[in-house]
Design a protein around this nucleic acid. Structure first.
Lengths: 337, 337
DNA sequence: CTGAAAGCGCTTACAG
DNA sequence: CTGAAAGCGCTTACAG
């Protein structure tokens, strides 16, 4: 409502002086004038129009959290976003951005949109992209010329600032532990590994562990699909009718692993006696199943914090070289192995 | 980068003509000019600065999803936001806003912030507030003068547009079902009922069911606390050492109920043989526990859609009276009862 | 220490 | 059908 002009009129000064007070450029204004203006601002509940500021200063204090939706994000068909992973990450990103005085715009990006347009539209200061794959980079994400942090993305590794979990090591740890506990027919349930990404890296770790244990990988050990609870359930069912071929499974995510366990149990298999299962993420929901899920733990809240901090270093110019940060993983042994 | 002036220069027209083309006011421009300008826009990848438009037009196409944080939202201390409820709701809200051409700003609001400032700062077109209680209304939410939809909020019922679940009926259904299946010592685990809200309404339904069955409510049947998995676990533990006083529990949310079940089982009680448990929400995680959770189901995706649609009706002026919409609930009988 | 003026990138009456 | 000009609410050199 009330603009800087209104405040200036009430204080009987120019709007430039009001602007200086608002922006705390106190050296340019006398103490009395500062006091008077601040009092009037408080009385009138004045708060600046950030669009106007943005238009002039060419910064917005808005950070965009963008999630590519190559995959369906119609919540009526696919509720993948109810994975607690997302809630925890958004919570952390918003919390840390707010601490730094930034605002969060949140958006799924589909193939028909171009991220750089969005960035220009809103004068966006920085972008956090979660889980992009190659073909998306070429269309959706090209030519974004503001600081961008890639989360869980393995593309153009040399060129982009990124934060990843040590997915490869996680895959190795999980698989190697299955081997150490006597398993020899170790399958893997994973989302698509056709593109280089989180899934393919976890798969790489799995393959390395097999190799280091001199186990020959069997093509029938690989299950690729959409990483949902339902898909896990289907795989559990399939495994149940091919039980001789498997004695363990490394599963891409906790949600998927819980689906697998449900499927296995529904069709009469015992976990871990017949089939051992290891998940990935370390979410609290792993505590809900029976048996409790053995998993590879990553700290999602820290991941959100690191992405914001890295972005802030980019925005402040404190960080000028490409940074690539890797979060550690940890094997959390529960009851499903 | 390139502004409307640049396009005007290339097309050898005035920027006003370009503006008319961008805004599809085709009646004001000749066919040839339209074609020429649209070609140039495509070639230059021009996309308008929405801040500038917003400054002039006084609308922003931004909708704020605001979650009050009277309770701690420091994700390092409290991971309440990893409740799948939030992920599903945000997914739905963003999806539906995008369909209508709006952008989502997402923010927790704490006691030191004032929502109306945020609204003015960003020229926000509409607000969706999730789960507010009385004392927050007076400070944080007062004098917001854009269309606002209250979700899961029971304050100033007569004055505000709101969308709620039939919490009271849910509480009744759950409790009555416990009675119908022979339970007589029915406790309730719930978040704070001191303020009128979702929790107190579910509690009201619980009390009504007891009354209609002529069961005297015992003060020791009420457990109030922060609705987290951990708090549920604690209550389960407590109940275990006071097992004679209870044979059933109606629990405020699925997450909390799963915690309760975990606590009960850890300390040797059988669900449902010793204690029957009913949750609330109908989340997929209820399928993970053993026994599977009997619960009151609400459709969260539809809830998100309804809030967006109601807000859109307000923004378009199509809806001019206060609207109060209530989502139905349904008893989902699984194994914990 | 204070002010007048230009300008950020748009849109909107108003003229022609 | 097209254009010149004012203005949205700010900030930023530049003068004084």
């Amino acid at each position: 409502m009330s603009s800087i002009i209104e405040i200036a009129r009430l204080a009987k000064v120019s709007k430039m002086t009001v602007s200086n007070v608002i922006n705390k450029k106190y050296s340019k204004v006398s103490k009395e004038t500062i006091d008077k203006i601040e009092r009037i601002i408080a009385e009138t509940n004045y708060t600046p129009n950030l669009f106007a500021r943005s238009l002039k200063s060419n910064t917005s204090k808005i950070v965009l959290l963008a999630i590519p939706q190559t995959i369906e994000n119609d919540p009526y068909k696919n509720k993948a976003f109810n994975n607690p992973f997302y809630g925890e990450l958004i919570n952390s990103v918003e919390y840390n951005l707010r601490k730094h005085g930034y605002y969060l715009m949140f958006r799924f990006i589909n193939e028909n949109e171009i991220l750089s347009n969005l960035v220009i539209n809103w004068n966006i200061d920085g972008v956090i992209i979660l889980g992009a794959i190659e073909k998306e980079m070429d269309v959706m994400f090209k030519e974004v010329n503001v600081p961008t942090v890639y989360l869980d993305t393995y593309i153009d590794i040399a060129k982009n600032d990124m934060i990843i979990t040590d997915d490869e090591k996680g895959g190795f740890l999980a698989t190697d532990y299955l081997y150490q506990t006597g398993r020899r027919k170790i399958g893997i349930v994973v989302s698509s590994i056709k593109e280089v990404g989180v899934a393919s890296k976890r798969y790489d770790g799995y393959r390395q562990a097999l190799a280091s244990s001199h186990i020959d990988f069997q093509a029938s050990w690989l299950f690729e699909g959409f990483p949902s609870f339902e898909f896990g359930d289907q795989i559990g069912k399939y495994i149940s009718s091919h039980k001789d071929q498997y004695d363990a499974l490394f599963v891409y995510s906790d949600i998927l692993a819980l689906g697998v366990i449900k499927g296995l149990k529904t069709y009469g298999l015992r976990v871990p006696e017949d089939i051992a299962v290891v998940g990935f993420d370390g979410l609290y929901i792993g505590e809900l199943s029976e048996p409790k899920l053995t998993t590879i733990k990553q700290d999602i809240t820290v991941k959100g914090e690191m992405s914001v901090n890295l972005l802030m270093r980019k925005l402040s110019g404190e960080s000028t070289t490409v940074e690539q940060l890797k979060l550690p993983v940890e094997l959390l042994i529960k009851e499903s192995t």
